[in-house]
Design a protein around this nucleic acid. Structure first.
Lengths: 194, 194
DNA sequence: TGCATCTGCCTACGATTCGTAGGCAAACTG
DNA sequence: CAGTTTGCCTACGAATCGTAGGCAGATGCA
């Protein structure tokens, strides 16, 4: 029997491509085996089980996104950095919908801590260095950025802003404008704005 | 054989409860049959297939959410309405995580159009009547509200803001404060704020 | 080069799931 | 009280996950 040259890493990459083409839900041992031209049983010396496979795709996606966001943000500050940061997420989600879905898989705490997850939070904080936010306000802002970008890309991927007007690119730009203004004039809860 | 009194509606409700208890992914004909004490084959006179079951749960969740959001927003305006609107979504997602997940199921266009989905957009627009936004700006703002609330509840449900400080309730309040300020001073893209 | 070992993919299988076909009995209908 | 409808059943085929054990190609060593 010819050897297919299977590797955990190669299988993970193939599974990620499969996710982008057929959806993350289609990432199963059986489907992956068909894709690489091998019998399902042959995968189990490289992968523990179906959940292990999906987790590996999730970790890959988190790494790739952190790399791209890191590269996009490097050397930028202020609104430039904000636009690059959000754009990197949105572009990744549109180019790799299956991988993006995978990145939202629930990981157990130990795996999550060892993943690229924490790097994402660090990158968000790096962007906020261009704004005058300190202490808890910075944490609130990190969470807001995460919510807006994740929410926007999810709704966009689900077809929420489909083919209605105005187009999604316009709303995206306006959203970044709005966030920029908001971060520069972050409201102080002790003084009510009239 | 004793009759179990199955109904499409009753099965949908049981499936929704099952989703909240075991996760939306656990909503399968086999699991539902176990829950209601019946053989899997018995379900197929009430449900077309597994996808039909999940779709019904999604439609139920969209209805329930729209009802709750509608009740929360009724008789309120401005920031009051904004807080009630966001709070209704967040509370629903925390009380019914499985149903909330179900509501994010991709529906085919015809089903989506006939669902409570459009009501959600109308409710968002109703909230925005308390702010001075017109035309396309209102659409941008509707999308922003959707993104923030969906993103926040998703990340919160995934344990994103887990047991770190400051706590999630505080960030939530600050997020609503920030959105209120933003909607009142919606940036005009033609004039750069210095 | 020849031989032994190891590694990698295979076939075979049991358990579980989805969904269909057809049967039997309980519950309405006149 | 008979006839019909309705509702849940058993039985089954196809597909999936994951395990066990086998065989052959690759590798190491004399």
């Amino acid at each position: 029997m010819a050897r297919a040259g299977l590797t955990t890493q190669r299988l993970t990459l193939e599974a990620a491509d499969l996710a982008d083409e057929a959806g993350f839900a289609a990432v199963t041992p059986a489907a992956l085996a068909r894709r690489v031209g091998v019998r399902p049983a042959s995968l189990y010396s490289h992968l523990r089980d179906a959940d292990d496979l999906r987790t590996r795709v999730a970790l890959l996606a988190l790494e790739e996104m952190a790399d791209r966001v890191g590269a996009a943000v490097a050397g930028r500050a202020g609104k430039d950095a904000l636009v690059a940061f959000g754009g990197a997420y949105r572009d990744y989600a549109r180019e790799h919908p299956g991988r993006y879905d995978a990145a939202r898989l629930r990981l157990d705490p130990a795996t999550a801590a060892a993943s690229a997850g924490p790097r994402h939070a660090e990158l968000a904080r790096a962007v906020l260095r261009g704004y005058d936010l300190t202490g808890e306000d910075q944490t609130h802002a990190v969470r807001l950025l995460g919510s807006v970008f994740h929410g926007y890309t999810s709704l966009e991927a689900a077809g929420g802003f489909g083919h209605s007007s105005p187009d999604s690119d316009t709303t995206w730009r306006r959203t970044l404008d709005a966030l920029d203004v908001l971060l520069r004039r972050w409201p102080d809860p002790t003084q009510e704005t009239p």
